[in-house]
Design a binder for these strands. Structure first.
Length: 894
DNA sequence: CCGACGCGGGG
DNA sequence: GTGTACGCGTCGG
C-alpha cells in the first residue's frame, strides 16, 4: 500500500540492536500515520593519519558495533583542492555510540580530521533520503500491527519526497496549568497542580475548551476529579484521544510541561503523551528548557515571539508576558483580578462558588489566548515556520535551535550531491571565545544634529552580503590557500588579501545556495502575482519570507564562531568587501552629484540634498541609485525612501520623518533606530515625553517648541500634575528577599508592605510597581506602592524623576541639536537643561546637586556618575558626596 | 570602556 | 540523544 503524508516528526528506536527509523505524519484528510524504515545505519568519515591502524583499532575495540570501513573519495570542505581526497567511511550499528567513537578517534592520534560525526541520526536519515521537515512524503510498504505507536503504521521500502504547496489539516491543543504554591513560585517537588485548562483547534467533539479540576466539586463548565492524580490521568487521556499535532501554551516549555512531567512522576503515571510508547521528558540546558513529545510538535508562542523580536521590529515589546503579547497581537488581554496571584489562587481553591468560577475562567482565557497566538496568523504565522522547516529540512520543533542548524542541514543536502564533506562542529578551545575578533561592517561618521532643509535620501544595497557572496564566489570550499598552485588570475582577491577561486572555475557551495535562494524567491514572488487563492497566497508569502531569511543570514552564519563552516578569513573578507563598497559609493555620490553623504551603516548611505519637493527628491534618489549600480559589479543600490527631517545623535542612534511612495501617494511615519522610546526601566512618562519631543522636532521642526514641551513636563512634575500611573517603574522579584545582597527600591518596598499587612504582598516572581516619594531617607526607602501614595496623599520625588528618568534620554536628544546654537532660543543665550531645573528647584543644596558632575565616596574615594540609589557607597557603605567639574576637591557635603 | 553575570516567561 | 539559546542590561573592575 501507499501513504502520502506531511512529515511532522522523525525518530528511531532500537530493535534487535539495530535502528528503526519512524516517520510520523499527517495525511491530506487529517489522519495520523507512521512509517517504519529498517536497514539504515549511522556512519561518518575520517581523514586518516594511520589508515590501517584505524581499522585495527575499531575492529578490536568495537567488534559488536563496527559494520564496515570503506575507502571513498570526497572533496574536503575547507580550502580548495582540484581533486577529491581518499577518506574512510565508517559504518556502525548504533547511533548512540557514534559520539563515543568520535571522541575516542579524536584523542587516538590516528586521524587527521573527522567529518559528519555529529549529525543527529534522524537528520542523517532524512537528508540521505531527501526528506525535509514538514514536506510531503510518499512511502510504500505493508501495514504492521504494533503497539509501539498509537497510530496506523506501515513498514516501508520506498520513501520519497514530493512537492505539494498546501499543508495537511493540523490539530492544535493549547493548555495552561494552575498550581497552589506554598511560597514564591510553585515548586513541582511539593506544590500540586490544581487545575488544567485546554483549548482545541479544531473543536474536540464540539468542545472548544475544557477545564479539569483536581477537586471534586461541580462547577458549570469544568470537569471535577477526585484529586491531582485523577486530573493528570484525565489530561493524558484527553491528549491521546484528541491526538493533536501541535501542543501549545504560553511558556509551556519553561514551566507547564516540565511541571506536569514532574507531577506525573510523583504519582507514578506513565508519561506517554506522544504518538509512540515513549516517555516524554524535559531537558534543561543553561537557563532554557526543551520538551520532547514524540510524534507531536511543541510550539511555545513565548519562544516564538522572543525569537521574532530579535529580527522584526513589530515584535519588539516592552515585556513578553502573555497579557502584553496578547494585547499587541490579538488586541485581547488576560482576565484581570484583584490583589496578588497567590491570594487569588488560594481564595479560589478554598471556595466552591464565585471565586473558583472566576479562577476557572481566568485559566481558560490563558490557554485560549496562547492558542489564538498560534492559529490566527496575525503576526505569529505558523506558515512561516512551516516554510522554514521545508527549506532547511529541520523538523518544526527543532527550528528554534538556531540559524546555524538551519543552514547546516540545508547545506548538507547540497554537499552530498557534490561529494563534499560536512565539517564537524568546532569543539574544545576553538569555541571558548579566545579567538580574536575580525573587523566588522562600516558605519560612516554621522553629521550629528537635526537636518531639515532638503530631503535626505536613504539608499541601500539589495542584500549586499549575499550579492557579494555570489559575485566574488565567497566560500570556504573555494578558499585558495597559500602554497596552492592556482594563478591569481583565476581568483577574486578580497581587500584583506584572501583569495577565492572564480565562479567560472568552480562555484562554491555558499554562492550556489545563495543563488538558489535568490532565484527561488524571485520565482515565488512571480507566482504570487498570479495566485488568486487566499490561503495559497499566504503560504507563498511565507515561503518568500523564509527564503529571504535564509539568504540574509548566510553571511552571519559564516561569521558565527560555532558554525561548522566558520572560517575567519572568509567572514572578514565579506565585511572588508562591504566596507570597500560603501566607501566607493560615498565617493561616487559626493563627486558626481555634489551632495554630502551624512551617514551610512553597513549597506546603506544617507544623502543630504537641497531638494524639498518629495517627488523631485525621489527622482534624484532613483537617479543616484541607477548611477551607482552601473558602476559596481553585481551589486544593486536601490532608492528606499526619504526623510523630510532627520535627527542623528550618534552612530546607530537616529530618528527620521520618513516618506515612502505607495500605490497612489506617500506614506509617512516616524522611524527610529537606537533611540528607544520603550525600555523596561523607564516609566511611561519618560517614553511618552521622549516620543513627543521627537515628534515635534521632526514633524514640526520646531526646536523651541520641543524644548518648551520638555520644560513644561518638568514643571508639571514639580507641581505634582503628572498622573501617578505615568510614574510607575516596574521591577520583578526574582529570588527570595533574603537572597538580595544590595539594596533595591522594589525589594525594600515589599519588605515595608509586609510589615503593614501580610496579605496581598507580592512574592517571588511577582512584578512590583513603585514610585519614588519625597522624603529624607535613602532613595530605596522612598519606593512606595502607588495605591498607598494615592490613599495617603504622599508627594512624589520630582527630583528623582527628573534626574534619573527624564533627563538622561532627553539630554542626549537636545545635546545633538546643539543647545548653544542661536536659532534655538530667540535671545541667543545658551540655555542648558540644568537651567530649567534650577528654575524649578529653589533650595540651593538641591540646585548644587543637580549641577554635580559626579559623586564620590568620602571613605574610599570611589566615584559614581550618578548618586547611588541607596545613597551610600556600594563598596564600603561610606557617605557619598558630589563634586563639580573635574576637580573633586571642590566637593560639598550633601 | 570592558568583560562577567544574570535575567527573561511561568504560579 | 551523532545536538544544547540569546540578546540585553547591570555591575564590578
Amino acid at each position: 500500500m501507499e501513504l502520502k503524508f506531511q512529515l511532522i516528526d522523525c525518530d528511531y528506536t532500537m530493535v534487535n540492536d539495530l535502528p528503526v527509523v519512524r516517520l510520523f505524519g499527517k495525511t491530506e484528510d487529517g489522519r495520523s500515520v507512521c512509517a517504519f524504515r529498517e536497514g539504515f545505519l549511522p556512519y561518518f568519515y575520517v581523514l586518516p593519519k594511520k589508515r590501517d591502524e584505524i581499522v585495527e583499532f575499531l575492529k578490536n575495540k568495537y567488534p559488536q558495533l563496527l559494520v564496515k570501513v570503506e575507502e571513498v573519495e570526497r572533496y574536503l570542505p575547507i580550502g580548495f583542492s582540484e581533486k577529491k581526497t581518499k577518506v574512510l567511511k565508517i559504518v556502525l550499528k548504533s547511533p548512540p555510540h557514534v559520539a563515543d567513537i568520535r571522541e575516542e578517534l579524536r584523542s587516538s592520534g590516528l586521524i587527521e580530521e573527522i567529518y559528519e560525526a555529529d549529525i543527529l541520526f534522524k537528520y542523517r536519515f532524512m537528508v540521505d533520503f531527501g526528506l525535509y521537515g514538514m514536506k510531503w512524503v510518499r512511502v510504500s510498504g505493508n501495514p504492521v500491527k504494533t503497539i509501539t505507536v498509537k497510530c496506523p503504521a506501515i513498514r516501508c521500502e520506498a520513501v520519497r519526497s514530493i512537492d505539494i504547496i498546501e499543508n495537511a489539516p493540523l490539530k492544535y491543543l493549547s493548555f495552561d496549568i494552575e498550581c497552589l504554591p506554598s511560597e514564591g513560585m510553585p515548586d513541582s517537588k511539593k506544590d500540586q497542580i490544581i487545575l488544567i485548562s485546554l483549548s482545541f483547534e479544531p473543536a474536540f467533539n464540539g468542545m472548544k475548551d475544557m477545564v479539569i479540576l483536581a477537586k471534586n466539586v461541580s462547577i458549570l463548565g469544568s470537569i471535577p476529579c477526585s484529586d491531582e492524580k485523577e486530573m493528570l490521568e484525565k489530561f493524558k487521556e484527553t491528549i491521546n484521544k484528541y491526538d493533536p499535532d501541535v501542543l501549545t501554551g504560553y511558556n509551556i516549555e519553561g514551566f507547564d510541561l516540565p511541571y506536569i512531567f514532574d507531577r506525573m512522576d510523583a504519582h507514578g503515571i506513565k508519561k506517554d503523551l506522544g504518538r509512540a510508547d515513549k516517555i516524554c521528558f524535559s531537558q534543561k540546558f543553561g537557563s532554557a528548557q526543551r520538551s520532547a513529545i514524540v510524534g507531536r510538535v511543541v510550539i511555545d508562542p513565548f519562544y516564538i515571539i522572543k525569537y521574532l523580536s530579535v529580527y522584526d521590529q513589530p515584535h519588539k515589546f516592552r515585556r513578553y508576558d502573555l497579557s502584553t503579547v496578547a494585547e499587541k497581537i490579538l488586541g485581547e488581554r488576560k482576565i484581570e483580578f484583584e490583589g496578588s496571584i497567590r491570594t487569588f489562587t488560594e481564595e479560589a481553591w478554598n471556595s466552591h462558588g464565585e471565586k473558583l468560577k472566576q479562577f476557572i475562567e481566568y485559566s481558560r482565557k490563558d490557554s485560549d489566548l496562547a492558542l489564538k497566538l498560534i492559529t490566527t496568523h496575525r503576526l505569529v504565522d505558523m506558515n512561516k515556520f512551516i516554510e522554514m522547516a521545508k527549506l532547511s529540512g529541520l523538523l518544526l520543533q527543532d527550528l528554534m535551535a538556531g540559524q546555524a542548524a538551519r543552514h547546516e542541514n540545508a547545506l548538507l543536502y547540497e554537499l552530498i550531491k557534490k561529494d563534499v564533506l560536512l565539517p564537524c562542529k568546532p569543539h574544545g578551545k576553538v569555541f571558548s571565545g579566545s579567538e580574536k575578533k575580525f573587523e566588522g561592517a562600516i558605519v560612516l561618521e554621522p553629521a550629528v544634529g537635526l537636518h531639515k532643509d532638503g530631503a535626505i535620501l536613504i539608499l541601500d544595497f539589495k542584500s549586499m552580503y549575499p550579492s557579494m557572496i555570489m559575485q566574488y564566489n565567497i566560500c570556504p570550499t573555494v578558499l585558495v590557500r597559500e602554497g596552492t598552485k592556482i594563478d591569481d588570475k583565476e581568483c577574486n582577491i578580497s581587500p584583506t588579501g584572501t583569495k577565492f577561486l572564480k565562479k567560472s572555475v568552480r562555484e562554491g557551495i555558499f554562492p550556489y545556495v545563495a543563488r538558489y535562494y535568490f532565484d527561488s524567491r524571485s520565482e515565488v514572488r512571480a507566482q504570487m502575482k498570479k495566485e488568486q487563492d487566499e490561503s495559497k497566497l499566504k503560504i507563498l508569502d511565507a515561503k518568500q519570507y523564509a527564503l529571504k531569511g535564509m539568504l540574509v543570514s548566510l553571511w552571519g552564519y559564516i561569521g558565527f564562531v560555532g558554525a561548522r563552516f566558520h572560517v575567519q578569513e572568509v567572514a572578514a573578507s565579506i565585511t572588508a568587501w562591504g566596507r570597500e563598497n560603501i566607501t566607493k559609493t560615498k565617493k561616487l555620490i559626493e563627486e558626481n552629484f555634489g551632495y554630502k553623504v551624512i551617514y551610512g551603516d553597513t549597506d546603506s548611505v544617507f544623502v543630504k540634498t537641497d531638494i524639498n519637493d518629495l517627488e523631485k527628491a525621489a527622482e534624484k534618489g532613483k537617479e543616484i541609485a541607477k548611477f551607482v549600480t552601473g558602476r559596481l559589479d553585481g551589486l544593486e543600490l536601490t532608492f528606499e525612501k526619504l526623510f523630510k527631517t532627520f535627527l542623528i545623535l550618534s552612530k546607530k542612534r537616529y530618528a527620521g520623518w520618513s516618506f515612502e511612495k505607495v500605490n497612489n501617494g506617500w506614506k509617512d511615519e516616524l522611524s527610529m533606530k537606537g533611540i528607544e522610546t520603550i525600555r523596561r526601566d523607564w516609566c511611561d512618562l519618560t517614553s511618552k515625553t521622549l516620543f513627543s519631543v521627537l515628534n515635534i522636532l521632526l514633524k514640526e521642526q520646531d526646536t523651541k517648541k520641543a524644548f518648551n514641551y520638555a520644560k513644561d513636563i518638568l514643571a508639571k512634575l514639580e507641581k505634582n500634575q503628572i498622573p501617578i500611573e505615568d510614574l510607575v517603574v516596574t521591577k520583578s522579584i526574582s529570588k527570595s528577599l533574603k537572597e538580595y545582597k544590595g539594596i533595591q527600591p522594589h525589594i525594600e518596598l515589599v519588605k515595608k508592605m509586609r510589615q503593614r499587612s501580610p496579605v496581598g504582598v507580592p512574592g517571588v516572581g511577582d512584578r512590583v510597581g513603585f514610585v519614588i516619594v519625597r522624603g529624607l531617607q535613602l532613595m530605596s526607602d522612598r519606593a512606595e506602592d502607588p495605591e498607598y501614595v494615592k490613599q495617603h496623599g504622599l508627594k512624589i520625588d520630582s527630583r528623582y524623576y527628573i534626574e534619573s528618568q527624564l533627563l538622561p534620554p532627553l539630554e542626549r536628544v537636545f545635546e545633538a541639536i546643539g543647545i548653544g546654537k542661536s536659532e534655538l532660543i530667540g535671545a541667543g543665550r545658551q540655555l542648558l537643561l540644568a537651567d530649567i531645573i534650577k528654575n524649578g528647584l529653589k533650595k540651593p543644596k538641591e540646585e548644587a546637586l543637580m549641577q554635580a558632575d559626579g559623586f564620590v565616596c568620602v571613605k574610599c574615594n570611589k566615584t559614581y556618575r550618578r548618586m547611588p540609589l541607596i545613597g551610600k557607597c556600594s563598596d564600603c557603605n561610606g557617605e557619598v558626596t558630589f563634586y563639580l567639574g573635574e576637580n573633586r576637591s571642590r566637593s560639598l557635603n550633601v
